[in-house]
């Protein structure tokens, strides 16, 4: 879609624009959609401002017919709440984490302090849990995301669990495919080679059980 000009009109302009431009284009009818994570909610809401136009969100569609039609959410985990193996007070640290996560309202308060754009935990929220001033689109996300993840309909962004080499390859070398310098098959072969090497080097990051 990028090389066909669905974003920014053409590939070269897509390369020239930054996130401010992409956000602005979306808010001013320059583009039909903006592909971004939930952290873009607040910027989008601000950019639309008093405009008579409105916006809403949708999870990315699943293009593989074998995977079913249920929406799938990509978790862009950029950090974890972990306890250091050398911690002198591991139990105390665990208590803090329990304290935050055991209370739905408390967890939601933390999420709210980040504008409901980050730190989104898939807890089973109901309408009653939310502040009446919350943007209904963000509320819908939190409830539907919890349902989808509860059903196992989630995956991860490449930067969450990809090893470094295949992780860089997938975004950097995609430009080479768009440029027509290599075929998609050659791209996938290189990706396979890098994954094999990462596996051989024991560089795979363990993914949590579902």
């Amino acid at each position: 879609m990028v090389d066909e000009g669905y974003w920014s009109g053409n590939l070269e302009t897509y390369y020239s624009l930054d996130w401010d431009d992409f956000n602005n284009e979306f808010a001013t009818r320059g583009s039909a959609m903006l592909m971004i994570g939930t952290w873009g909610f607040n910027v989008t809401a601000t950019n639309f401002g008093e405009s008579s136009d409105d916006w809403d969100w949708n999870p990315l569609p699943i293009l593989n017919s074998q995977a079913g039609s249920a929406p799938n959410y990509q978790l862009a985990t950029g950090g974890t709440m972990s306890i250091n193996a050398a911690s002198k007070n591991a139990d105390g640290a665990a208590k803090v984490i329990d304290w935050i996560l055991s209370d739905k309202a408390r967890a939601l308060k933390v999420t709210g302090s980040l504008g409901y754009g980050a730190w989104l935990l898939p807890l089973k929220y109901t309408d009653a849990d939310f502040d009446p001033n919350i943007d209904p689109r963000q509320k819908r996300f939190l409830t539907e995301f919890a349902e989808a993840s509860d059903s196992g309909n989630y995956g991860y962004t490449t930067w969450t669990f990809y090893p470094n080499d295949p992780g860089v390859h997938i975004w950097k070398d995609m430009e080479v495919v768009w440029a027509g310098d290599i075929t998609p098959l050659e791209f996938m072969e290189e990706s396979q080679r890098l994954w094999d090497k990462a596996r051989e080097d024991d560089a795979l990051v363990p993914v949590g059980k579902r």
Binding site: N10, L11, E12, T13, Y14, Y15, S16, L17, D21, A179
Partner: peptide, 28 residues
């Protein structure tokens, strides 16, 4: 200067001239 929206390209576009519409930094 070479930004396709805010630079010379955007200015020429506003004048109806198709010049520097693409940044030379973005063309292979």
């Amino acid at each position: 200067i070479f930004h396709p929206r805010h630079g010379l390209g955007g200015w020429f576009e506003n004048q109806g001239i198709d010049f520097l519409a693409k940044s030379p930094f973005a063309m292979k």
